[in-house]
Simulated assay, not measured.
Amino acid sequence: MPTRRDLLAAVGAAATAGAAGCVQVGSPDVAPSAAGAAGNATEDGTTEQRSGSATETEVYRSTIQSVVGVLNYGRNGPQGSGSGFVAGDGYIVTNQHVVAGATEVKLRFRGNVWRDAEILGTDAYSDLAVLRAEDRPEEATPLSWVDTEPEPPVGTPVMAIGSPYGFSGSASTGIVSGVDRVLSAPNNFTVADSVQTDAALNPGNSGGPIVTYDGDVVAVAARGGGDNIGFGVSAALSKRVVPALAASGEYDHSFMGVRLIEVSPTIAEAYDLDDVGGVLIVEVIEGGPADGTLRGTDGETTVDGVSVPTGGDVVVGVGGRDVEVQADLSNYLALETSPGDEVEFAVLRDGSETTVSFELGERPEPNL
């Protein structure tokens, strides 16, 4: 059976015809645009399709049946809405914050088809949730996750599909404009390996898919920023968390038990470091996994008028990989480890590099 990617490639390889006038995006009567980003203008004014590349309309048509609106009902009625999409063996992926506090969830499939949904699992630390729809429409087939080895690079064209402000079936386009972003999560933790995009993400887009032009999900839309900055939970992290939520209702995140900050120029000067890189352990939580192994700061000094904490370990490597910024450490823990794993850390301590190791714990329950 041909995959969604095969169908897009086949359609993209064919010539497209121009259409005059105004049409509604996603309308069944819409013809692919001859002026789409996937076409090249020729000298006689016609459009030559790039081989193997799909237009925006073709990407939209190939994925929209699998995208849903998500309505969150509480004890006092509707209390929020968002988006989602079909994945895996037919479950629905969305954001945790879209269904938080729900006593009932309803899904709106393409064609104004409504279904009740059951919440299978939620995870605040990745802001992901998995639902199961009753009697899912047959045409709502699962979307595939993008190949994450390697992940799509910055500049990859993408489309965000969802229900911003309740307008179902809306699409916006852009590119992957950043990777390896670290976003805030409950309890002062972070969501690692987040994807940045300039595709418009507005209230209601949360939980919807951000797809490549092959129709594969590169991220789960999570939040809009402003000035063309939005973020999504990466396919790499989603592929670890979502199956666990579908199977058991929860996901266990690795936990070091430390507070840390990135090494800045002033910290590098205070610690007499040759390079600005690594993360400084500010505090080791008593009784936590790193207690007795890593050292937190115990003093302070002033550099160029800035107070700098001193005495702590500077982590410059984990699992045999360099740590230059916080994202390097966060992404490794999120994508390569699980609670109970013994992990080796390279640290700068008292002016020299040493190696320590300890067993990772499990993040405590979030305060929501």
Rank of each mutant, 00 (worst) to 15 (best):
M1G: 15
A9T: 14
A19C: 12
S27M: 06
V30C: 02
A31R: 12
A35R: 07
A37M: 13
G39V: 13
A41P: 15
T46Q: 13
S51G: 03
G52Y: 03
V59C: 11
T63S: 12
S66E: 01
N72L: 00
Y73S: 00
Q79A: 00
F85P: 00
V86S: 09
V86N: 10
V93G: 11
N95K: 07
Q96T: 01
H97K: 04
K106V: 06
K106C: 00
R110N: 07
V113A: 04
W114K: 08
R115A: 02
D116C: 06
L120I: 08
D127W: 01
A129Q: 07
E134N: 12
P137L: 00
E139W: 03
W145V: 08
V146Y: 05
T148Y: 03
P153F: 02
V154P: 01
G155I: 05
P157K: 12
P157L: 09
M159S: 15
G162F: 00
P164L: 12
F167S: 11
S172K: 03
A185S: 12
N188G: 14
A192Q: 12
V195C: 03
V195L: 09
Q196M: 07
D198F: 06
P203Q: 09
D216Q: 15
D216M: 14
A222R: 10
R223N: 01
G226D: 15
I229V: 15
V233G: 10
S234K: 09
S234D: 12
A236D: 15
R240C: 10
R240F: 08
V242M: 09
L245A: 02
G249T: 03
E250W: 02
H253L: 13
V258Y: 11
E262D: 15
P265E: 02
I267K: 09
I267H: 08
E269I: 01
D272E: 15
L273Q: 11
L273A: 08
V276Q: 04
G278H: 09
V282K: 06
G288D: 10
D291V: 07
V303L: 08
G311P: 10
G311T: 05
G312V: 04
V314T: 08
V315E: 09
G319D: 01
G320K: 02
L329T: 11
L333I: 09
E336Q: 13
G340M: 05
E342F: 06
V343I: 12
E344Q: 08
V347T: 09
G351I: 04
T354H: 05
V356M: 08
V356P: 02
S357H: 01
E359V: 13
E365R: 11
P366Q: 04
P366W: 03
